[in-house]
């Protein structure tokens, strides 16, 4: 059970830069919801704001660090994770959270994302996936489902789309969760788990873009869609508590093609993180240096 410790008013007072509010986001945008969840997760874990660094790239989602009363770095398009690598490595005391969009992480910055997973840097990457480039007015992105219309695919998107969570899992991430913005409590729980993870945690938040990606006529239809069509991914789950248990990935992807949204905790495993390994290396290097002296 998740305890809601502080009232929203207190959280707002504590964590938001009030001189920048209200946010620049459109009505019904999921970015604000993710901000809401992240604040609650941080508050529940009692992380000091002085040690919090929010790193972001370019796009709507990347405007989030500006609103947070903590350190924020709004970097260049797609490079947020590369900046975060430098920040986290040189000061492991910091809690580094990367806010990124789907264009940021799956198109221009995909390499940095996969490499950071490979290195297993202890950062929490929160991808707000609205399946299009919202800030520039709704162009196709690598996560836009096939067959969708966008301003740059006026005759339907003919490209296969990425499922970022499964991509992260395949690359070897130590923690991956996928939720929609309608899954408030699950998202908060996953963000908390991700923040506590010693290694790269990736949380994909499927988010509505009611203005640029006109799948639905109004914002509440998005919410209904997320609530009704989400099915939880829980393979190998023995205790059948979930209504939907996939036999294998194939079945899972078939459901996705049929318009279902796969959500859930995709993976949670232990893996040595880069910082530990670097410190081990340092000891070895020093011993060798002294021996050769």
């Amino acid at each position: 059970m998740i305890k809601i410790a502080n009232s929203t008013k207190d959280l707002r007072e504590k964590y938001l830069r009030k001189d920048l509010l209200p946010t620049i986001f459109c009505p019904g945008c999921g970015n604000g919801q993710v901000l809401n969840y992240v604040i609650r997760a941080i508050d529940a874990l009692n992380i000091s704001q002085d040690n919090l660094v929010f790193v972001s790239g370019i796009g709507c989602s990347s405007r989030l660090p500006a609103y947070l009363e903590a350190y924020g770095v709004h970097t260049t398009h797609g490079r947020a994770i590369a900046y975060a690598t430098g920040i986290k490595l040189t000061n492991p005391e910091l809690t580094v959270i990367v806010f990124t969009g789907d264009g940021d992480i799956s198109a221009i910055g995909l390499n940095h994302f996969l490499q950071a997973i490979r290195r297993n840097i202890s950062i929490t990457v929160i991808c707000i996936n609205n399946e299009n480039y919202g800030m520039t007015g709704g162009q196709v992105s690598p996560t836009t489902p096939m067959g969708h219309f966008s301003t740059t695919t006026p005759y339907q998107n003919i490209e296969h789309s990425f499922n970022l969570s499964f991509l992260a899992k395949a690359a070897g991430a130590s923690y991956v969760a996928r939720w929609t913005t309608a899954h408030s409590l699950q998202a908060i729980k996953s963000i908390k788990k991700g923040l506590q993870k010693q290694g790269l945690a990736f949380i994909e938040m499927l988010s509505p873009c009611p203005v640029s990606k006109k799948t639905f006529k109004n914002t509440t239809e998005y919410l209904q869609y997320y609530l009704n069509e989400s099915i939880s991914y829980s393979p190998n789950q023995n205790n059948n508590t979930s209504a939907h248990v996939f036999k294998d990935l194939h079945e899972c992807f078939t459901a996705q093609y049929e318009g279902k949204i796969i959500v859930g905790e995709i993976i949670d495993k232990e893996k040595p993180n880069y910082h530990q390994l670097y410190e081990d290396l340092r000891v070895r290097a020093r011993n060798e240096f002294r021996k050769n002296k």
């Binding site: 809601i4 929203t8 008013k9 938001l16 604000g32 809401n36 309608a182 408030s184």
Partner: peptide
């Protein structure tokens, strides 16, 4: 249940 408080993108709602 505080669902409205949690879902609000602007953190505008408080239930007390």
């Amino acid at each position: 249940c505080k669902k409205c408080e949690l879902i609000c993108p602007e953190m505008a709602i408080t239930i007390q």
